[in-house]
Design a protein around this nucleic acid. Structure first.
Lengths: 149, 149
DNA sequence: CGGGAATAGTTAGCAAGGCTAAGGAGTTAC
DNA sequence: GTAACTCCTTAGCCTTGCTAACTATTCCCG
């Protein structure tokens, strides 16, 4: 059922097929994560940002995930309730809240990293080296697309 | 903020970064569609399948979108309520329901096609030809990943 | 031919995760 | 000092996925 091989020649066709492929792949990614993993895929992404960038404000987290602030507040609430992050007051600006990865959050993130991408990595392993190389180059482009104005 | 350029060397890193990029891009795609478009992005994908493949059963639609049957029933309900598709009895098998694109559904799909991918196409237009080529080759691979077992 | 298993779809209800609107607390600028 | 702005949160809604359980139909086998 090669719905995607078809109209990829034109740019409009590329947009259309890319959209369908991204929608389907993300649906699988959400469905296929480890059932024992207590973290949702969105919460996991936030832990990843904190791990890479260190302490971060709620608004900044929202911007980095292209989400509205209330959505990020809810995600941070869930993470804080689980002990994965903690809220601290900003030292200078009383309006801001600094979100910090706890030791438990860091440990959970590291321990789950390998497992989390198991399904996708298994799929990647079945590709040819050339195909993996295409995806390696495509990933940053997709991310830039997601952030363009 | 090049969160994706980083760990893409290893396969586990590729899986991780690809996942993040796909999640973010799909979020943008959902958020950026034409506000005047009455069809959700999932409903649009179903119309596209019907347009490409002709009359299709609910179960087959569910399988093609990698969704459980009840989810597809709901999507088809919404489409039928809007007059975009109609249900017909299967001529031989009384259990099956055949979903058919109506003239209105076809017209809506064709009229919206150009607009629907406007945001993504605009983003694609800002890429270099080489980058577009990477995506052109990546799209079918992503779709195969979404369907692999 | 009759009855149990299998298949297609639906209904009901739940959860995740987006959103907007509105409000509180803190900061800034005039 | 007060008005406007910023950051975050609360409250509530909507979409869209899921599972469980049900109906209707078909298939198969004894």
């Amino acid at each position: 059922m090669p719905t995607v091989e078809r109209t990829c020649r034109t740019d409009a066709g590329l947009a259309s097929e890319l959209r369908v492929a991204v929608m389907r792949l993300r649906r699988r990614l959400v469905a296929e994560r480890d059932p024992g993993n207590p973290l949702s895929i969105g919460a996991t992404a936030v832990l990843g940002v904190l791990f890479r960038n260190g302490d971060t404000g709620v608004g900044e987290l929202a911007a980095s995930e292209r989400v509205q602030p209330p959505s990020m507040t809810r995600t941070v609430n869930a993470l804080a309730a689980g002990g994965y992050v903690e809220r601290r007051p900003h030292p200078e600006d009383g309006r801001q809240v600094v979100v910090r990865l706890t030791e438990q959050g860091r440990a959970t993130l590291l321990a789950d990293r390998a497992r989390r991408d198991a399904w996708l990595a298994r799929g990647l392993a079945e590709l040819s080296p050339e195909e993996r190389d295409v995806l390696r180059r495509a990933a940053p482009i997709l991310d830039r697309l997601a952030h363009h104005d």
